[in-house]
């Protein structure tokens, strides 16, 4: 499914504020434990194993994921705003495919 990841960041915040950032990506998160009912063979693992958030090029959040994470993973985290800048989110799955999203954050 080629869908854009969904990211929610407040448009502006004060320096030093703690803001919540929400992300949601559509992915089937195949565990690698299921079998194909027709052939009896295992369906290979295909999950998003890494999520990284960067702020102005500096990593601020990282999550490693394992097979117990359900489909369409929703990740929310908090960030203390140091300055205005751009958030850069990257998801990587087992096949090496990446999805990315960018959001600008202004300070007031």
């Amino acid at each position: 499914m080629a869908i854009k990841p969904r990211v929610k960041v407040p448009k502006s915040a004060k320096v030093g504020d703690t803001i919540q950032i929400k992300t949601l990506i559509s992915h089937k998160m195949e565990t690698g434990l299921r079998k194909d009912k027709k052939t009896g063979k295992k369906i290979p693992r295909q999950i998003i194993n890494m999520f990284v958030a960067k702020f102005n090029g500096k990593q601020v959040f990282q999550a490693k994921m394992y097979p117990s994470i359900s489909a369409n993973p929703y990740i929310a985290f908090f960030l203390k705003v140091p300055e205005a800048g751009e958030l850069d989110f990257t998801w990587t799955d087992d096949s090496g495919k990446t999805w990315s999203a960018k959001k600008k954050l202004a300070v007031s």
């Binding site: 869908i3 929400k22 949601l24 929703y74």
Partner: peptide, 8 residues
Amino acid sequence: DFENPGMT
């Protein structure tokens, strides 16, 4: 609406 996975 954001958290609702159906919205994708």
